[in-house]
Each structure stands twice: as structure tokens, then as C-alpha cells.
Amino acid sequence: MFKLYGTEVSSRLLLGTAGYASPDLLRQAVEASGAEIVTVSLRRESARAKTGQGFWGLIEELGRKVLPNTAGCRTAKEAITTAQMARELFGTNWIKLEVIANDDTLQPEVFGLVEAAAELNADGFDVLPYTTEDLSVAERLVAAGCDVLMPWGSPIARPRGLRTRPRFRPCAPIFPTTPLIVDAGLGAPSHAAEAMEMGYDAVLLNTAIAKAGDPVKMARGFARAVEGGRLAFEAGIVEPRDMASPSTPVVGTPFFKIDNVS
């Protein structure tokens, strides 16, 4: 159990809702994942198709807490307006804040991100910022009022795991009271387990499950990996050593002779 802006959350897997082959597959994957929080977006609504109305019905059926995002926003101004529309639409102060620098990497535009985070926090939002592993940016986001940080593992939808691993590792001890969620770039359950073993509080992913051969089975796989990684972190992982050391007791070894010891 951990807390995000005062809300107790059991599942440490947050799940995106995009890219599934069908609404039913999305529903099954969410159930299999055990996720309590699902991410959503808002998009222009066609007067003819009214696509969003049907999707909203599905979200209500799922009964999960929704985390709207500002995906696609390129400036702080766009992100702020999108967040305000999302708050009214979804009835939540939570916002997954994305300000994107360019389309090829979907890298966070960190200057606009900090600017938008400060304004939204001041306006009563609970901001969950999608950021890089850069510690100085993380510190500015915390100073701007963010009580959650969501550094990327790899660029969005490039499921390569923790590509930023060397700079990623220090985040957890530096921000001991701020929930840290790895957002984006996790492609396999092993990536999620690694993040959890490092002390991250949760992972947020979408493509790795939505685009898997069997999304429902993959959702189950991620759920177990996240749980396993967390248990390992809480249990305390043994330190690696350079030299081998027998795990079976040496004392009483049959045929043991002191001459055999090098």
C-alpha cells in the first residue's frame, strides 16, 4: 500500500488505456493487471461520431480511478488549458502532466513542464509530472509543489527498459518521501521488476501490454513482476560480490581435507 496525493493505492501498476484491439480486450487487461488507476486522455470530439461518449461509458464500467494526461501538449499554456478541461471532464484534480519537446523522442520539455507544474499546483491540481531522470529537474518539480515524480525509463512506446539506469538509480534515495513512478519505456515484466527492485514505488505502462500478443496474459505477467520486484526491495537484496562463496555449509563436508583449500 502506498499513497498518491493522500489516496491509498494497493496496486503498484498503473495502466494506460490506449492501443487495445477492442474495448473488451482493454477491459480484460485492466482486470488481469489488478490496476486501480488507469490513464486516459481527451481529444477533439466529432459531432457525428461522438467517439468519446462511448469510451466514457467503458471507463465508468471499469470503476477505476482515472488519471487524465496532457499528451501531445507542446507548451506550458497548452498543457494548463488541457489540464483544466480534463479536471472538468473527469472530475478529478489528478493530472499526468506531459509537455513534450519533440515528436521523435517524446522527450519531456522540462522548462515548460516545471512552469506548468507550478501553475497547476497553485490552482489546486495534484500534478504527476512525466519527466526525465535529471535530478535538478526533479528538484524543481518538487519545489513547484509536485508530491509525485514520474521519470521515464525509455522514450514513450520504445519498450527498452531502464535505458537511463545509471542516472536513474540515485532518484529513490534522494527523494525518500516522494512517490516515484517509472513512466514510459518498460517493455517486459523484467523491466518493471528491475525498477521495483531499485525502490521505485510503482510503474506506469501502456504499450507493453496493449500491443503484446496476448495483452491479458501480459497484464498478469506485469502484475506479478511488479509485486515480485516490490517484495524483493522490501526484503533487501543481497549485495553482489566479485568472488564466489559456497552457500552450502563448508563445515562437515565429506572427504574434506585442508590441503584442498586454495
Partner: peptide
């Protein structure tokens, strides 16, 4: 004018 509605998101 922008008129938006809920949609799938990651």
C-alpha cells in the same frame, strides 16, 4: 473553439 471528450490515453 475546442470541444473535447474522453479518449484512450497512455
Amino acid at each position: 473553439i475546442e470541444i473535447v471528450a474522453p479518449r484512450q490515453g497512455g
